[in-house]
């Protein structure tokens, strides 16, 4: 009863235009579902860490400028409209500042030289820890 692999290949060549249409639409649907249902939850809070300690957790909906002193000096973090970013940092390469605004839960900006990190958390944290 089971068709062999070459027979399956043969039946691929017999696919009709509607079949290709169904395959294409379903593929788009699957990609759409992955994009929308996997970790694109908007964040509710930002957690600021200095070294290995949680410095503070702020609500993202309340606009404020936060000054945090890290290993090198003072960094400024802006929070507004459900987003957060490093606005100023005393670090050399400024990667953290260039990362710009973060707004999805699970996103993080880590300033290694200054030992300050931002992590966005949603209503519930998608994971407990990340190891590199």
């Amino acid at each position: 009863m089971f068709a062999s692999f070459t027979q399956i290949k043969n039946s691929i060549t017999h696919l009709r235009i509607g079949d290709w249409l169904v395959i294409a639409i379903s593929s788009v649907l699957v990609v759409y579902l992955f994009q929308h249902l996997w970790s694109h939850e908007h964040a509710a809070k930002v957690q600021i860490r200095v070294g290995d300690k949680v410095h503070a957790t702020y609500d993202l909906n309340l606009a404020r400028h936060v000054q945090v002193t890290g290993a090198l000096g003072e960094a400024v973090i802006h929070i507004a409209h459900g987003k957060a970013r490093f606005a100023k940092s005393p670090c050399h390469n400024q990667y953290c500042v260039h990362q710009g605004w973060l707004n999805h839960s699970g996103q993080a900006a880590i300033c290694l030289p200054n030992q300050i990190s931002l992590e966005l958390i949603g209503e519930k944290k998608p994971y407990d820890t990340l190891n590199y």
């Binding site: 009709r16 079949d19 169904v22």
Partner: peptide, 14 residues
Amino acid sequence: LPKRYFGAVSLSIL
């Protein structure tokens, strides 16, 4: 669906 355009594969995926 018109058989000319939609075969078993369409039905199966749907």
